[in-house]
Design a binder for these strands. Structure first.
Length: 819
DNA sequence: TCCTCCCGCCAAGCA
DNA sequence: TGCTTGGCGGGAGGA
């Protein structure tokens, strides 16, 4: 049995090949689409005008013509088959690969610009597309549905879609990530993997039922389509079928990537999750196969969009197909993004009545551009969290603002500034998009690092391991503070978005970008990660009953916990892209209008540790010194961070524990912080840069509790002496003295590699008299003792944190980059 | 052999 | 009623 020959007589190829007389080697007759010229009658003229005016009419005419031809074509094909040997005929047909959905999608995408001008809407006429691409309409639907799920197109009417391009992609991905987090996909993934793991040891047990019941109990039976306001969604059918729609599946699939770390999802897991959501009883093989098929369809389109890439994961049970997210890194929503994201659902929470489910389609697809929210539980949570965020900001001027990597990176990865700063030209935007990979590389320089996740119970309300503003984004040059004594410049800044956004996301770690010279080692690490994805993700399942309404509870460290080796790989790639990044600086300057910097932290050079893991590092720390000759930095957070020794310089710094950073600044303080001019920023590449004003610095220092009120710090604070408050904690010189202390955020800017580091310093409180400290030490003292830290995130579980990833800076021996 | 996914049937629902 | 849309699964092609 052979696949029946394609009946689609629409193929121009076939048309041109037709030989009505079935005579081999005869000149084919003139194709019918160039008919003998009609007499130029008014009627024919009118026909032509109508046809030209309406593509639909035109295509309908063409279809009619084609259908007239179809029988003829069929006949032709049969003739062709008869005359050609089987092999020859097969060869004459386009190969299976040439007809792949991925290739078709490429062709489809090539027809439209990535970033169409908003003023000039591109419309997609399905008839035209099917005709020009010589494909069946059915295939176009597959593509369009996936594109629709990403809001790259939207349906306008029958046969008609609007092309949005990638304009909405950042928002869509953010929204999807948010919904994915709310749906606890990461837990489902972990659950599935655990089941698989258990199944290996107990293959006879009936795990499917268990798994099904797990899904059923976790509110995951909802299938939703995530919409964006302004992107009108008019589904062709508002029936039950849409619950299984390719669009929804596509969104779910993308969500899985966005919440996973590493961002690799195997088809098997994805299918199981999709089935699990769908119908619990459908965990049979045929459904599974069907889901896999659909996932391949979706994956093909996503691959064409360069959002994912096919990979294989090798597990104990063999090699599994999987896909890796290669799209832009999506960080948790900023408040703005959250406001924009609307999630609609077609399945109400279990407690809701069926009536609401029936009404859902109406709520889902309003006739006009919508801003309304449906009564979906996750959506309600989302709205509430937004409201909470707002309330926290507005009602408590001194309450902390979380500085999150998400905030930072979402701005950096995506041209979110588009919406905020319309002055940015389209050209710039396109430039950004075209250098998306570059941007990603640059982002890697500032991406937060994974760190072992603290248990939720260990996280105090105010010291949740917040997403840390990566101290640098390549497009965000830091404020440079020259340090005359060391000759090293330091930078402090806070992204302005932090002043008005609150993230609910909490990766619980921070970033320590450094140049990565040892690419090989990193790559090998990375490959290990790829090969052990399931074990990498581990059994770090969070409690299912974790409240999601509160700000703190929404923070999900694990969603950010990309493995250190992966990030390091990115870093190494980033290094390779360094030239590109530098070249982009001029572009970044053009964005300066939207990027204002606020001093927010203090600068501290990264300790120089051995190439290796935390244990190695701490061993060295205990010796008090990290060997200078090593060419790689190590941190428990980042893993191996190679750095040439030539770039190092030793300075005196007291003992500090560096832990995942939480910086919490009040919006007021941020607002009051000096805004450096662009010229200042741009010129501040080295120690010649001007300092921020002393008063502003003092204001900020006092405000965040680094220095007591009344104490003044010189404008160049890093190595300046600061009068010590009588209440100040002493700083321990003991390297192993891990005690509760304050968590202070610091940014370290390396002028050499333009990387920045954010650390949270946890000064140890000594029990013994303190040995003489360098002047710098006092600067880092935390005033007021452990109970008086109003705006800094507390770290009552300092010991835990330390055990999970504190980087200890050995006393008096720290290396920093030098010019 | 198994992964990949093309292909088209056919049903739902729209105009 | 014809057409659009899209779920679905058989089975072919390719690795």
């Amino acid at each position: 049995l052979k696949t029946p020959l394609k009946q689609a007589a629409t193929s121009q190829l076939v048309l041109t090949e037709r030989q009505p007389d079935c005579q081999p080697l005869t000149t084919p007759p003139k194709p019918k689409e160039t008919p003998p010229a009609d007499p130029w009658t008014p009627t024919s003229n009118l026909k032509m005008l109508i046809s030209a005016a309406s593509p639909e009419i035109r295509s309908r005419e063409q279809r009619r013509q084609l259908s007239d031809n179809s029988s003829e074509v069929l006949q032709t094909k049969h003739c062709l088959q008869e005359h050609l040997l089987g092999d020859e005929y097969e060869k004459s047909q386009p190969s299976r690969k040439e007809k792949s959905l991925g290739l078709l999608c490429h062709k489809f995408l090539a027809r439209y610009p990535d970033y169409p001008s908003p003023s000039q809407k591109s419309y997609i006429c399905l008839d035209e597309v099917t005709e020009e691409l010589h494909v069946e309409r059915r295939r176009i639907y597959d593509i369009v549905n996936v594109l629709e799920s990403l809001h790259m197109v939207s349906r306008l009417a029958r046969n008609r879609y609007v092309w949005h391009g990638r304009h909405n992609l950042p928002q869509t991905l953010q929204a999807l990530k948010k919904v994915g987090e709310e749906n606890k996909y990461i837990q489902q993934i972990q659950m599935i993997k655990r089941r698989e793991y258990e199944h290996e040891f107990d293959p006879d047990s009936e795990r499917n039922e268990e798994m099904a019941s797990s899904f059923g109990s976790s509110e995951q039976s909802e299938m939703s389509f995530v919409e964006l306001p302004g992107v009108e969604f008019r589904a062709a059918s508002v029936n039950g079928r849409k619950y299984k729609s390719l669009r929804v599946m596509s969104q779910k699939f993308v969500m899985l990537f966005l919440v996973s770390t590493p961002q690799i999802v195997s088809l098997e897991v994805a299918a199981k999750i999709l089935i699990g959501e769908d119908q619990l009883e459908d965990l049979d093989k045929s459904k599974f196969k069907t889901k896999i098929r659909r996932l391949y369809d979706i994956a093909n389109v996503l691959s064409s969009l360069k959002l994912i890439k096919k990979v294989h994961v090798t597990e104990e049970r063999g090699r599994k197909p999987a896909f890796k997210w290669t799209g832009p890194e999506v960080l948790p929503n900023t408040q703005d993004a959250k406001l924009e994201a609307t999630s609609t659902t077609c399945s109400p929470p279990i407690s809701e009545s069926i009536t609401s489910k029936d009404q859902c389609p109406k709520a889902l697809f309003p006739s006009k551009g919508k801003q309304n929210f449906t009564q979906h539980s996750s959506l309600i949570k989302l709205v509430k969290s937004i409201e909470n965020d707002r309330r926290k900001i507005q009602s408590a001027p001194n309450s902390p603002v979380k500085i999150s990597a998400s905030t930072y990176q979402s701005l950096s990865v995506f041209p979110n500034t588009v919406g905020q700063f319309p002055a940015i030209t389209q050209h710039q935007l396109e430039g950004q998009s075209k250098t998306a990979e570059e941007i990603q590389m640059k982002c890697a320089l500032s991406s937060p690092e994974a760190v072992p996740k603290p248990e939720p119970s260990q996280q105090p309300a105010l010291s949740q391991p917040l997403g840390v503003c990566p101290a640098s984004h390549s497009s965000v040059p830091p404020v440079i503070l020259p340090h005359p004594q060391s000759g090293v410049s330091y930078a402090i800044y806070l992204h302005p978005s932090q002043a008005h956004t609150v993230t609910t996301y909490s990766p619980g770690f921070m970033l320590q970008p450094l140049p990565c010279a040892n690419v090989t080692g990193i790559k090998s690490n990375n490959s290990k990660v790829l090969n052990k994805i399931t074990t990498e993700e581990g059994d770090t399942q969070r409690g299912l009953d974790e409240p999601t309404k509160s700000l703190a509870a929404e923070e999900r460290p694990e969603t950010k916990s990309e493995t250190s080796s992966q990030r390091c790989l990115k870093r190494s790639q980033a290094l390779q892209e360094n030239n590109l990044i530098k070249r982009r600086k001029s572009d970044e300057e053009s964005l300066d209008t939207s990027l204002t910097f606020f001093p927010s932290g203090y600068l501290i050079p990264l300790t120089h540790c051995t190439h290796g893991n935390k244990a190695e590092c701490s061993t060295k720390e205990k010796a008090g010194v990290c060997a200078l000759q090593h060419t790689a930095y190590s941190s428990p957070i980042t893993g191996v961070i190679p750095m040439p020794a030539s770039e190092l310089k030793t300075v005196n710094i007291p003992a500090f524990h560096i832990t995942p950073l939480n910086i919490m600044l009040s919006p007021n303080s941020i607002a009051a912080a000096p805004v450096l001019s662009n010229s200042c920023l741009n010129s501040s590449s080295t120690s010649s840069a001007p300092n921020p004003s002393s008063s502003a610095l003092n204001f900020m220092l006092q405000h965040i509790g680094l220095i007591p009120a009344g104490v003044q710090v010189p404008a160049n604070p890093v190595l300046q002496h600061v009068p010590v408050s009588s209440q100040s904690e002493n700083i321990s010189s003991g390297s192993t003295n891990v005690q509760e202390g304050k968590v202070i955020g610091f940014t370290f800017y390396s002028p050499i590699n333009e990387s920045n580091f954010l650390f949270s310093l946890q000064p140890s409180a000594p029990k013994e008299p303190q040995e003489p400290q360098a002047v710098t030490e006092n600067f880092f003292r935390t005033p007021g003792g452990p109970n008086t830290e109003p705006s800094l995130s507390a770290n009552p579980d300092g010991t835990q944190r330390t055990s999970q990833g504190t980087l200890y800076i050995p006393q008096r021996k720290l290396e920093v980059s030098e010019d």
